[in-house]
Simulated assay, not measured.
Amino acid sequence: MKKTKEETNETISQLKEIARKHFTEHGYAAAVLDEIVKEADLTRGAVYHHFGSKKGLFLAVLESVQREVALKVEAEAGQSEDVWDQLILGCHAFVSTAVEPRNKRIMLIDGPAVLGWEAWRSMDEQGSMRLLHEQLQLMQQQGYFQSVSIDALTHILSGALNESSLWIAQMPNVTESVEDTMNIISQLLERYRS
């Protein structure tokens, strides 16, 4: 019996959510595809049909994680009308969301290791870095960062946020570490504020 598009989408969503749980708990290397499909009450064939491989399934999960983080960044930044506050709120949302247990291993650790640095970086550029670049460009058009290359600032700030997230994820007091990071990020940005 042929599945409807809605049933197919439901199967794909279910596989991704169960896989996300396994990748989070065990990491990509130790996650067992047979256990994922068993929990989903499916066969390995379903994974190969929809994702091509375990790596393809991981890629789909990582894309979902990155979309969720981007939505959180946009939602938090959107709580203010002031572009400076939007930037700070967005940076804060990124680091605090990236280090959530549900996200950090997939997005920050296994993502670059499984996909390779260039592929992971390309995904980052299309997601969080794109949002950051757009915000910084808007700010420059409004008179901020006049003497600064927005491309360079985007890469430097994105790198700082990613590296800080990795550091924060290992700290015993995540809340305090996020605040320490944001104090430094704010001071860094203030130096270039026009």
Results as ranks from 00 to 15, higher is better:
S128V: 09
A93E: 10
L157S: 05
A98V: 02
N162K: 10
G116E: 07
M139D: 10
S149T: 03
M139T: 06
E118L: 10
P112K: 11
V83Q: 11
L115T: 01
P112H: 09
D151T: 13
G143Q: 13
A152G: 07
G127I: 06
I150H: 05
A98D: 05
N103D: 04
I109R: 02
A160R: 05
M107N: 08
V95M: 06
M123T: 00
E76Q: 14
C91V: 01
E134W: 01
I150G: 08
V99N: 04
Q141C: 09
N162V: 06
E118W: 12
E134F: 06
K104L: 04
D85V: 12
I150M: 05
G90S: 08
L132N: 01
P112G: 03
E118K: 15
V99K: 02
V95F: 00
S80A: 15
E76D: 15
Q86D: 02
S149Q: 08
M123F: 10
I109H: 07
E100L: 12
E134L: 11
L89W: 11
M107S: 05
L161T: 00
D124C: 04
H92I: 00
G159Y: 03
S128W: 08
H133S: 12
S149N: 13
N103V: 09
P112F: 10
E134S: 12
L161R: 03
D85C: 12
T97Y: 05
P101C: 01
R121K: 13
E118D: 13
L108F: 04
L87M: 12
E81D: 15
S128Q: 14
E100K: 13
S122H: 13
G111N: 02
T154I: 01
D110T: 05
A160G: 11
D82H: 15
L115K: 07
P112W: 09
E76S: 13
A160F: 02
P101I: 02
L153S: 06
L138W: 01
Y144A: 15
Q86K: 15
L89Y: 14
R102S: 10
V99Q: 04
W84K: 10
Q79L: 13
A98N: 05
W117D: 09
L138Y: 07
A98L: 09
G116H: 07
Q126R: 14
T154W: 01
A77W: 04
S122P: 00
I88S: 07
Q142W: 03
A77R: 15
I106V: 03
E134T: 13
V83F: 11
G143D: 12
A75Y: 11
Q135W: 06
I109N: 02
G111Q: 04
S158L: 02
F94Q: 07
G78S: 13
P112Y: 07
T154A: 07
M123S: 14
L157E: 00
W117E: 14
